[in-house]
Each structure stands twice: as structure tokens, then as C-alpha cells.
Write a protein that binds this DNA or RNA. Structure first.
Lengths: 194, 194
DNA sequence: CCTACCGATCGGTAGG
DNA sequence: CCTACCGATCGGTAGG
């Protein structure tokens, strides 16, 4: 329960940064070790394999996506409010740690078989949280679309690509970006005739 | 001008498939060679380097995106029609060759410096085609949004993520998916009050 | 297009 | 956490 950043945490963060910048297979364990000032072999006192390092980054990110979305999804509120809050919740996770988000979205597929399947399961569960909200919106006749699965994928597509262009030192805060994206997703970009 | 599929074409397609499935750095030149029934070293009679193989896949895909979008972007038509056609044009390129599209979208960043910068330039030009259409829509007071850059990125985010879930053997044709996506993007998912 | 090979680098380990 | 090392594999080349 200490607030100290352990060497293991340092390694995970360094891995996230390098996996994000160069990709998993273009990053050597020696690259990661060098970034935190130790020798390549010394990493193996914290992680059993390179795969386990990737897993540390990916599973950590997955946890944060769930922790952010679940309270919103389970809240009892008008569905449009929930969807708007859900968009902002997702985007906050992405913007809080762009490196980890990028690795979670792009590099997870380089995990070994077992862990890759575990991530597939987690992604399905996460998508199901969205799909449930969309289905509620369709039932309540608040959403126009009828295909909850394709709507969910549409939403997540917009959100997941965010890490490619969002820059934290840019002009917009995470919440501003989230609000804008929610407008686009819910209302579309076409002007509504009066 | 022959219609024969040359060994070089075969190699490019095999590379697209393997780069898509495993990623650039997880694919060896021997993997690619094996797929077309030659030895690893023999690839170098067609390509000077592995980087050049990746470039063949990426630049080919870029060409097809431009060839598909440009006639739409330059047409003289109501902007909503153009945007709808543009969405479909983009999606047709993605669905016609999912492997190449995935490599263009995900693996291009593993190109060497010079070619990576060339791709960055091409992507900026492609995005500019979209931004010009969006700006026209804003000028014509047909679009509600005001920030053409973020709208363009929103559109392309939805479209670029398509390759992760679209399956050609699924129930929808490329045009049906394109039409659906255009509805979502232009009108949003919220029901319009009557 | 093949055979045979090169140096470099990789993930990972033993022993301390 | 380091030193020193392992076998395996990599991209690429020479010579035919």
C-alpha cells in the first residue's frame, strides 16, 4: 500500500511508452531496461517474460476502462445522459494515459495465445456494456437506429481511434473532446432542420 | 500490360496478408517467401529490402484510396450527396482488400524514415480532401459543426476502424455498410424529434 | 530463383 | 540487480 513508484511500475510505464512508439516486436527488453537504468537481464527479476510485460500494460489499461465505464453503465439515469457520460468516461481513460491506451488498442494482439484470448473476452464484455446501453436507448425509442451491435461498434470506432490524434498539450481538455465527440455521435454532423 | 499475376504481385499480396495477421516485425521474409513457394533469399530479386515490400503494400493501398475518393470529392453535387458517396467510396477500398487496408492503417509506421514521412504527407492530403468537403458543408450551412478538422477526424476514425470488425462473408455488402455508416455519421444515432 | 552463408540482435538464463 | 553467456532467428548477400 505504498505510494512509492516501484521499479516494476517504472518498467511497465517504460514498456507502455516504447511499445506505443515502436510497437511490441520492434522494442527489445534491453530498450525497456535501458530506459529505467538497469540491464536487460535484470528485467526478469520483475517479469517472467516479455509477454508478461505486455500483459501488465494491457490488463492494467483494461481495468481502467472498466472502472471508468461500469459506474456509468450501471447508473439509473436517462439513457442519453448515460451515453454522453460513457463517451466522456472512455475518453478520460484514453487521455489519462495515451501510451497504455494505444498499446491496449493496437499491440494487444501480440500477446501469447492464452492472454490474447483473455483480452478478446474482456473486449467483448466491455462492448457488451455499450450494447446494453444502446439497446436500452432503442427500447426507449430515444435512438433511431435498430442494430445495437453495429451502433456500439460505430461508437467504439470513433473513440478508439482518438489516441492517434489527441495530444494532451493541445487546446482541448479530455472533457471538452468527450463532449464534442458525444455531440457528433449522438446528433451526427448534419444540421437539424428547424 | 499483361493480366498475369507476377511473382512480385504474389509476394506483395502474401506480405499484405501476413503483415495484417501478425504485424510487420513478427513476419519474416522467409514467412512471405514460403507462402509463395520460394526461398527467403529469392525475394530479394523482386524487392531490395523488407521495407520495400511494406512500401509496396502501403503505397498501393494509398493509391486506391485516392483513386476512389478523388472523383467524388471533385464532383459538383450537393455536399450531403458527396459526403455520403465519399463514405461509401472509402469503405469500398477497405472491403475490397482488407489485408492491405489494415496494413495501410496500422503497419505503415514501421516504414523507414523517408517512406514514413511520405505516407504522413499522403494521409494529410487525403484528410484534406475530406476537410474541404466538410468546410463546404459548413459554408453551405448544411452541417451543424463548426470545426472542420475535428469533424474530418471523426469521420475517418469511424471509417478506419472498420477493418477490425467487417467480414466480407458477413451479411452486409460494402455498400450497405457504407450507407449505414453514412447515416450514423451524418444524422447521428439519436432519434430526430418530429 | 537456389544454396550456403554472414554478422547482428533477439529473448531468456545461470550464477553470483 | 549484474556479468556473461546461450541457442535461435533475423534481414540480407555472394555466387551460381
Amino acid at each position: 500500500m505504498s505510494l512509492t513508484v516501484t521499479k516494476k511500475d517504472e518498467a511497465r510505464q517504460a514498456a507502455a511508452k516504447l511499445f506505443c512508439e515502436q510497437g511490441y516486436h520492434a522494442t527489445s527488453v534491453r530498450d525497456i531496461a535501458e530506459r529505467i537504468g538497469i540491464q536487460g537481464g535484470s528485467l526478469y527479476s520483475h517479469f517472467a517474460s516479455k509477454d508478461e510485460l505486455l500483459w501488465a500494460v494491457v490488463s492494467d489499461a483494461a481495468d481502467r476502462f472498466f472502472a471508468s465505464l461500469r459506474p456509468v453503465a450501471e447508473a439509473d439515469a436517462p439513457i442519453l445522459n448515460k451515453l454522453r457520460k460513457a463517451v466522456i468516461a472512455h475518453i478520460e481513460v484514453v487521455t489519462n494515459d495515451l501510451d497504455a491506451a494505444a498499446v491496449y488498442i493496437v499491440e494487444w494482439r501480440h500477446l501469447g495465445d492464452e492472454r490474447r484470448q483473455e483480452v478478446t473476452k474482456l473486449r467483448d464484455e466491455y462492448e457488451a456494456l455499450w450494447r446494453d446501453m444502446v439497446e436500452q436507448g432503442i427500447r426507449d425509442r430515444v435512438l433511431a437506429a435498430t442494430d445495437a451491435a453495429s451502433v456500439s461498434r460505430f461508437i467504439l470506432s470513433s473513440l478508439n481511434y482518438l489516441f492517434t490524434w489527441y495530444r494532451p498539450d493541445g487546446p482541448m481538455t479530455a472533457e471538452e473532446v468527450g463532449s464534442m465527440m458525444a455531440d457528433y455521435i449522438l446528433d451526427g454532423i448534419k444540421r437539424r432542420t428547424v
